[in-house]
C-alpha cells in the first residue's frame, strides 16, 4: 500500500513510488540522490517528528520531516502512527486511544473509538489545534490530545498537493 515516508517506522523496507510537492521539494529530493523505484530502509523515525534517517544505496541519509511527507513509498506493512502526525487530507482508522480519565472519556464520547475513520481537514492558523472530520462532523482537538491517539493510514490524500500555488500553476496551464 502507498504511504508517506514520514509515517514509516524504523526497520521497514519500502520502495519509493512517487514524489509530490513543488519544484523546490523535487530539487531537494534530487539532491539527496533519491529516485523512483529505489528501495530504502528506514533506520530511525522517532516520534514521527524529527528528521527520518533512511538507508539508500548503502548510505545513511537524513530526510527532513516536511520532505519525508512528500515522498510516497510502497510498503507491505502499515504501522500505527500518532494522530498528531497525520497530514491534512489523509484518511486514517483509529487503532487505540491511550489518553486517561476525562480526556479519554471525551474522545470516546465524540466517537473516537477503535475502527472509526477520520481525516485531518485543517490546522488552526497557529498550527494547533487541528480539525478532524469523523462521523460526518468536525471535531477540533489540540495536538497534545492527538498525541494520545494511534491511527493507521487508510488512504493518502487524493490531491497530491493542495498548495494554492500549485493550483494557480495548473490554472495558468
Amino acid at each position: 500500500m502507498l504511504t508517506r515516508l514520514c509515517y514509516c517506522k524504523a526497520g521497514l523496507e519500502v520502495k519509493i513510488a512517487k514524489f509530490c510537492g513543488g519544484r523546490g521539494a523535487l530539487n531537494n529530493i534530487k539532491s539527496l540522490n533519491l529516485s523512483i523505484d529505489d528501495s530504502i530502509i528506514i533506520q530511525k523515525n522517532e516520534n514521527y517528528r524529527s528528521p527520518v534517517t533512511i538507508q539508500s544505496k548503502g548510505e545513511n541519509i537524513l530526510v527532513g520531516k516536511e520532505l519525508a511527507a512528500k515522498i510516497i513509498v510502497e510498503s507491505e506493512t502499515i504501522n500505527d502512527i500518532l494522530l498528531s502526525s497525520l497530514r491534512t487530507g489523509d484518511l486514517a482508522e483509529v487503532k487505540n486511544v491511550l489518553a486517561k480519565g476525562e480526556i479519554r472519556r471525551r474522545l470516546l464520547d465524540m466517537g473516537l473509538i477503535k475502527g472509526a475513520i477520520l481525516e485531518v481537514i485543517r490546522k488552526a492558523p497557529l498550527g494547533d489545534p487541528i480539525v478532524v472530520k469523523l462521523n460526518g462532523f468536525d471535531l477540533s482537538l489540540r495536538l497534545n490530545e492527538a498525541e494520545n491517539i494511534y491511527v493507521s493510514l487508510k488512504s493518502l490524500s487524493n490531491s497530491s498537493s493542495k498548495s494554492i500555488f500549485n493550483k494557480l500553476k495548473m490554472l495558468r496551464k
Partner: peptide
C-alpha cells in the same frame, strides 16, 4: 481541561 470541541455547522 481538554480541548475536544465540535465545530458545529
Amino acid at each position: 481541561e481538554p480541548f475536544v470541541m465540535e465545530l458545529p455547522p
